[in-house]
Simulated scan of single mutants.
Amino acid sequence: MAEIRSWPWAWAWLALFAIVLLRAGATYGIGRLVATGVLRRREPGPRLRAAAERVDRWGPPVVTASFLTVGAQTVVNAGAGLAGMTWPRYLVGLVPGAALWATVWSTIGAGAFLVALRTGSERGEAVAVGCVALVLVAVVAALASRRRRGSLEA
């Protein structure tokens, strides 16, 4: 990671963006394979089932928000696959989430991000407000889309 962060910012961001797209997409793909029975060796554990239920209910905003957490990305991306979220719908959450993740890691890093949030520094507050605003916009867009889709079906 230190090697990538030593590159010019745009190249580092693009590399990190590509890495997280591939990793998260592969995790989603594994979840889809498990859901369709291709890898039917074990039943998913309770954490993975709970994540799949949340992802199925809330969709793309959950996927996006998972990239702002430590430890939830893998569970949420696998849960999206297990829940049977369609690829286009998954991409709506994946792309902005990957962009957020790449931005944090190519600039200040996750540790500094968490410290900035805890200390309440001006820069940390701006980053936190921006992240929260982005997640809120994604949630509102998803809810509006769901309502619109529901009214079209009725």
Rank of each mutant, 00 (worst) to 15 (best):
W9D: 03
A10M: 03
A12C: 04
A15F: 10
A15K: 01
F17H: 09
I19C: 04
I19H: 00
V20F: 12
L22E: 01
R23W: 10
A24M: 05
Y28K: 04
L33D: 00
V34H: 05
A35H: 10
A35F: 07
P44D: 01
G45T: 02
P46Y: 08
A51T: 04
R54G: 00
P60C: 00
P61S: 01
V62M: 14
V62L: 08
V63G: 04
L68F: 15
T69R: 01
T74I: 10
T74P: 04
V76Y: 13
V76L: 03
N77I: 02
N77R: 12
G79T: 09
G81W: 06
L82R: 07
L82K: 03
A83W: 07
A83V: 02
A83Q: 03
M85I: 07
T86R: 15
W87D: 13
P88K: 03
R89E: 14
R89K: 14
G97R: 04
G97P: 05
A99W: 08
W101R: 06
W101H: 08
W105A: 12
A110G: 14
G111D: 15
V115L: 04
A116E: 09
L117R: 07
L117H: 05
L117N: 12
L117K: 09
R118W: 11
R118D: 15
T119V: 09
T119I: 10
E122G: 10
G124L: 05
E125F: 05
E125N: 13
A126W: 14
V129M: 06
G130M: 08
A133D: 00
A133Q: 06
A133V: 13
L134H: 06
V135M: 05
L136E: 00
V137Y: 00
A138P: 06
A142Q: 15
A142H: 07
R146P: 00
R149K: 13
R149G: 07
G150D: 14
A154E: 11
